[in-house]
Design a protein around this nucleic acid. Structure first.
Length: 800
RNA sequence: GGACGUUUAGCUCAGUUGGUUAGAGCGUUCGAUUCACAUUCGAAAGGUCGCAGGUUCGAAUCCUGCAACGUCCACCA
């Protein structure tokens, strides 16, 4: 027998073990053993990490949970597919590369390099990131099928994107239009509502004289084009002014004519109850102008500078102009007052952080409220040809429970978001991404992958990265072809991701799948919380509190890192992680190592015993009964996504009951080789989804021919149990009850007995029967039953 | 403004259909240790389960109200 080290050294075995798994082919569903080939399919599509750099703790959490699910289901005998991939992450990656190029001294990367050269730099960076990510995903022990790896921007995904675009265009739910959008003047692209981050900011709030009115604003620099003055129709202060009335007044650059508009969007309580509107640069104003057919005029250009219509202020940046405009109005005696303590919220870009300027711009939109005819039977509710909207599809998928969200409170949040959802702007003025498959010639436009003929120009814009992400569950399985992978695995079993991208991504996959395929993309959604530092702060570079999985793995082992992300956490709830916690789980992996080592030493040359186990002593019967309980309970909890509870229970059993108690007995009493063999192999199987490396390592030291990776999950009914013997064992172990406790239990029993008597009397009373409503009687009966159960329990306890 | 979450031992958190004396890990204190493991073992201290009411024989758990912290959504010139 070989010499076994006293401490488990994860780093010396993990890479070799991963190699063995990968070369076994078992990550690939088509190469699994026969048992799994006949099992039902179980599929998880990995949320593709962005090709923007390296993996962080959030990714590690995702990989740990998904690998646990896949390994558990594989051992149960399912035909498991975990499909990995990466995301081009359009804007995020382009921003990152632009920053890198600027550091290299290229001031305006896009202008200086040109589209082709710039894109080749981005592609090189993305490829580099992908390689890093692949090796990191392996480091975490992920048992995903590398032969099926996909990329959101590869050729087949591009075909899927173009096909989906084409269908939506033909159905009239993709449409081009001039609408109000969120414009990022820094990166010169539009971004979606969900990519806008609102920041609280203190800014002066000015009140100006505007003819006979006073108006308030925090953005005087936009007021050049304001020629409508709006008030509430029932505001008596302004009853003298009539709808459509023209008023001559002195304004920034001289006299103008303002038109009175009466509209109930006005909040009479706010400020003076009067406002002017800037429809080109404000959503609310835009909506009002659209509704009332008012003129719109652009004031600020796409780079954040004032246009010629601002007169002497033309060409100034917004912030410069603000000061100057206020000075001028003040000089004209039109400034009434300034509130320096006004706090409002400004829109900034999620990537890059520049101030967002609302602009009217010609863009492509997905219309979520427009009726269209379905191309196939959908979600079991609609028939082919029925009219519906994308919003209705998104609601039905979750409301009908075809997609089930864990934890379920997020369903409410999901519905709320959909109710507020507006059309989705899908075009971006960036270069890295799927090019919009639309071609123009003179006044014509045509959707096509390639040029329809001579003289056609392709739309220069690309698609929002979430458009291709939305297709991820089925584009990866071969759609739009009728691929067998698609047929076997869609809808997928589980989508596991952080709750922070519920809207960005989860909702959009539901949209795309129910529209394009008529079915949900996944049956279950499991949302994990965000990983925070030990003080509960978000991990960030600027705070310097980042825990990097790649630093922790060599130090504590992958298994310990995985445990720290799986145990002590609940779905949808943020978790605090500290190195201390990981060290604690490293200690546990070592404990499991030494349990294995002890048993292997006990087994000696004879190795693992295969003979039927025959418990003889009370302790044997107790530990086997407990083992059977644990198998049942762990299986149930894993099925219910209760990873933390299952892991906790298993750790408790392994450490306290098995190691501290039973192994101590086994030291004194010999002849337990068969039982020890059985217990060890069983707990290795139970732990495998949590700690794949150490369990596989011990498994092979035990001389097992086949990998633990594909071993059969334990069944409790195969374990001999003897509940009475187990209770007897515990009774002997337990110290005598104290007299006070006995007294307390006696009192409690008496109380319950008297309650049962009085309730039974009451229920038997005919007068009561005739008067009491049914539900009251039913409630009383239910409670009576519970009380009787409790009585039995107490009586049983007393008899001990 | 709307919604949601959290509040349990010094710290991090479990506690799923209301039910024995509210648990675990870490930390603290005391003790042990050539016998699988000091990345260990045994023991102890430590909790009015945020606050106030209510339902119940019985509430950390259900209901109502309040408070603190956090998150998301909407966004008013």
């Amino acid at each position: 027998m070989q010499e076994l080290p006293k401490a488990y050294d994860a780093s010396s075995v993990e890479d070799e073990i991963y190699q063995r798994w990968e070369s076994s082919g078992y990550f690939n569903p088509d190469k699994l053993p026969d048992r799994n080939q006949n099992g039902e399919p179980y599929c998880i599509i990995m949320p593709p990490p962005n090709r923007t750099g390296t993996l962080h703790m959030g990714h590690a959490t995702m990989l740990a949970i998904e690998d646990l699910l896949i390994r558990f289901q594989r051992m149960l005998g399912k035909k498991t597919l975990w499909l990995p991939g990466t995301d081009h992450a359009a804007i995020a990656t382009q921003v990152k590369v632009e920053q890198l190029l600027m550091k290299e001294g290229i001031q305006n990367p896009r202008e200086e390099l040109g589209r082709e050269e710039f894109l080749s730099r981005v592609v090189a960076f993305a490829e580099d990131s992908a390689n890093t990510i692949r090796s990191q995903v392996r480091k975490m022990g992920s048992s995903c099928d590398w032969s099926r790896e996909k990329y959101t921007l590869d050729a087949e995904r591009n075909r899927a994107v173009n096909e989906m675009f084409k269908r939506m265009y033909e159905d009239g739910i993709i449409e081009r239009g001039d609408r109000m959008v969120n414009w990022d003047p820094g990166f010169k692209t539009v971004i979606s509502d969900d990519e806008v981050v609102w920041r609280e900011e203190k800014a002066p709030f000015y009140t100006f004289k505007y003819g006979p009115f006073e108006i308030g604003t925090s953005r005087p620099e936009t007021k050049f084009g304001d020629k409508y003055v709006v008030m509430h129709p029932e505001d008596e202060r302004y009853a003298a002014f009539k709808e459509g009335q023209k008023i001559e007044l002195e304004w920034i650059n001289g006299p103008i004519t303002a038109t009175v508009i009466k509209d109930s969007v006005i909040d009479r309580e706010f400020g003076t109850g009067v406002m002017t509107i800037t429809p080109w640069h404000d959503q609310v104003d835009y909506d009002l102008a659209e509704r009332r057919g008012l003129d719109k005029e652009q004031v600020i250009d796409m780079e954040g500078k004032l246009l010629p219509m601002a007169g002497e202020f033309a060409g100034m940046s917004i912030l410069d102009a603000r000061k100057k405009v206020v000075e001028k109005l003040k000089a004209k005696g039109l400034l009434v007052q300034v509130d320096e303590n006004y706090v409002h919220r400004v829109a900034t870009a999620e990537r890059g952080g520049t101030l967002i300027e609302p602009q009217i711009s010609r863009q492509w939109f997905i219309r979520v409220n427009k009726k269209f005819a379905l191309r196939q039977d959908t979600l079991g509710k609609w028939k082919k040809g029925d009219q519906t909207t994308l919003k209705e599809l998104m609601i039905e998928a979750v409301a009908s429970k075809q997609t089930n969200i864990v934890p379920d409170r997020f369903e409410k949040i999901y519905f709320h978001w959909i109710n507020n959802l507006r059309d989705w702007c899908i075009s971006r003025q960036i270069w890295f991404g799927h090019r919009i498959p639309v071609w123009y010639k003179d006044q014509e436009e045509q959707v096509s992958e390639t040029a329809p003929g001579k003289g056609w120009e392709q739309d220069p814009d690309t698609l929002d990265t979430w458009f291709s992400s939305g297709l991820w569950t089925f584009s990866t399985l071969g759609w739009p072809e009728q691929a067998s992978d698609l047929k076997n695995n869609h809808p997928t079993s589980v989508l596991e991701t952080g709750y922070d991208i519920l809207f960005f991504w989860v909702a959009r996959m539901i949209l795309m799948s129910s529209y394009g395929l008529g079915e949900v993309p996944f049956k279950n959604v499991y949302l994990h919380g965000l990983v925070r530092d030990e003080k509960g702060r978000k991990m960030s570079k600027s705070l310097g509190n980042i825990l990097d999985p790649l630093d922790l793995i060599p130090k504590y082992g992958t298994d310990a890192v995985r445990l720290s992300l799986l145990i002590g956490t609940t779905p949808g709830q943020d978790m605090r992680l500290s190195e201390n916690k990981i060290a604690g789980f490293r200690n546990f992996t070592n404990k499991l190592w030494n349990i294995s080592r002890f048993i292997m030493i006990q087994l000696g040359e004879g190795g693992l015993r295969q003979e039927k186990i025959e418990p003889t002593t009370l302790a044997d019967k107790w530990i086997l009964t407990r083992l059977a309980d644990v198998v049942t309970s762990i299986t149930k909890k894993l099925d219910a996504y209760r990873f933390s509870a299952a892991g906790d229970e298993l750790r408790d059993f392994t450490w306290t009951e098995l190691a501290d108690q039973y192994l101590e007995i086994a030291k004194k009493e010999k002849g337990k080789e068969a039982i020890l063999s059985y217990i060890l192999t069983t707990i290795l199987k139970l732990w495998h989804p949590y700690m794949p490396f150490i369990t596989e390592h011990v498994w092979s030291l035990l001389g097992q021919k086949e990998l633990l990776l594909v071993a059969e999950w334990p069944k409790s009914k195969e374990i001999p149990i003897d509940t009475e013997a187990a209770e007897e064992y515990l009774r002997q172990q337990r110290s005598k009850q104290s007299p006070e406790d006995q007294e307390r239990q006696k009192e409690e029993l008496e109380e319950i007995v008297s309650y049962i008597q009085s309730t039974e009397q009451k229920l038997a009373d005919t007068d009561f029967q005739s008067k009491a409503p049914d539900h009251v009687v039913a409630g009383m009966r239910k409670k009576l039953e519970e009380a009787k159960q409790k009585r039995e329990w107490l009586e049983k306890m007393r008899s001990y």
